[in-house]
Simulated assay, not measured.
Amino acid sequence: MIASIRGAVLSAGLDHVVVEVGGVGMLVHTTPVHAGAARTGQEATFFTTLVVREDSLTLYGFAEDAERKLFELVQTVSGVGPRLAMAMLAVHAPEVLRDAIAGGDVPTLVKVPGIGKKGAERIVLELKDKVGVIGGLATPLPVEPVAAPQDENHQQVVDALVGLGWSTKQAQDAVERVAKTDDAPREVSALLRATLRHLGR
């Protein structure tokens, strides 16, 4: 098990970061918030979970160990895999997700693409007495702006949302609605976060 990695950031996308460890670039899948906080050339530390499949080894990374444990915990529920668990943490901050599970807040959970009412109820039933033991969840560091052409920004956000489970039309409509607001962010990571908040309402 690779429990954590630390090294210089070689590159970062909307949902992943490549960290150099011992001369090897490790691709770490993470939430848009954490990916947006990574800066090329600067050192980054991720608490990680390695998911092993017959045809792949996928590394998922988090800013806090408690967040990693929450990622692993939700996957103990039938029907929740790494991709859905990551979508849950992308749509909701860890503390919001934990509170929703502990409090039986089904409407909050169903805002995540791929989780229906029955699935949310099952998550609450199986985990409401377990999430309380996970502590130490911290607020992510603020993300610095990253400039890019606006059309390209929108498409990157749409692609990221599709990767998290929304349909292309849902993603495009949401991005367009957010982009038309008076205080719409222009940077990719900020626009993605704003769109996720919009979709989570």
Rank of each mutant, 00 (worst) to 15 (best):
H198Y: 14
V96Q: 07
Q150C: 07
V28F: 02
M88R: 04
V143A: 02
E144Y: 07
R122W: 10
Y60H: 09
T31F: 04
G41E: 01
D151N: 10
E121P: 07
M88P: 13
G132D: 05
E152C: 06
G103F: 04
M88A: 13
E95L: 09
I134G: 00
V133L: 13
E95R: 15
H154D: 07
D183T: 09
G136A: 00
A3R: 15
H154K: 14
V33Y: 08
H16L: 00
R53M: 08
A138D: 11
D182W: 12
G165C: 14
D129I: 09
R83E: 10
L164V: 05
T108P: 11
Q42F: 15
G13D: 10
L164N: 01
G132Y: 10
S11G: 06
D65C: 08
L141C: 12
E67F: 12
W166S: 00
G136E: 03
V178K: 02
V178M: 04
E187K: 04
E121Q: 14
V146P: 03
L27A: 09
P140E: 04
S11Y: 08
V124T: 01
P113F: 11
A93L: 10
E176S: 12
W166I: 05
V188K: 08
L10W: 13
Q155P: 08
K180F: 14
D182T: 14
E187M: 02
A184M: 09
H16W: 11
G25N: 04
V18D: 08
V24W: 13
P145L: 01
Q75T: 01
D55M: 05
G132M: 06
V77A: 01
A138L: 12
E152D: 13
E176I: 02
A85P: 08
I134L: 15
H198S: 09
P140Y: 05
L196H: 08
N153E: 10
G25Q: 09
G200Y: 09
V52K: 10
K169Y: 07
S11D: 12
G41V: 00
D182H: 09
H29S: 13
Q170E: 13
G119D: 00
H92Y: 00
G25Y: 06
E176C: 06
P149W: 03
V21L: 10
D55E: 06
E152W: 11
A37R: 03
A35N: 05
D105T: 06
E126C: 07
T76I: 02
A190I: 01
I2N: 07
L59K: 05
S78C: 05
G41M: 01
R68T: 03
K69S: 15
E126Q: 09
M26W: 15
R186N: 07
L10A: 09
M88E: 00
V77Y: 10
A147G: 06
A190M: 13
I134A: 00
G135H: 04
F71A: 03
T40Q: 13
I134C: 03
F62Q: 00
T181R: 15
P185G: 08
P82Q: 00
K118A: 06
G61D: 07
A87I: 01
D55I: 03
V33D: 04
V175C: 03
P145I: 02
